[in-house]
């Protein structure tokens, strides 16, 4: 599964849990995992803010990790 609008880095899997508690991201290249207690649409919304404002200052901390650790591609990224 992919985020509807934002681009996951190649080799990154995402699983949104059925209880709506959040999502986990897994980077098959590094074996690293990040769990975020936000639903998929909330993550997309937050990423939209990030890519449209091009700033991480007001950014939700766990999501910041997604970018910094290379789970979300920042190359040629269009706003979600």
């Amino acid at each position: 599964m992919e985020l509807a609008h934002c681009k996951l880095t190649k080799g990154v899997d995402i699983h949104p849990f059925s209880d709506g508690s959040g999502c986990v991201f897994f980077n098959t290249n590094t074996g690293e995992t990040i769990g975020i207690e936000l639903r998929l649409e909330q993550i997309e919304e937050a990423l939209t803010v990030y890519f449209s404002q091009n700033t991480s200052e007001k950014f939700h901390n766990p999501l910041k990790g997604l970018i910094e650790k290379g789970f979300i591609s920042t190359e040629n990224q269009q706003p979600c």
Binding site: F17, S18, D19, S21, G22, V24, T33, G35
Partner: peptide, 8 residues
């Protein structure tokens, strides 16, 4: 635990 917490 919710499923995200359980997974992590």
């Amino acid at each position: 635990l919710n499923k995200t917490q359980g997974f992590m």
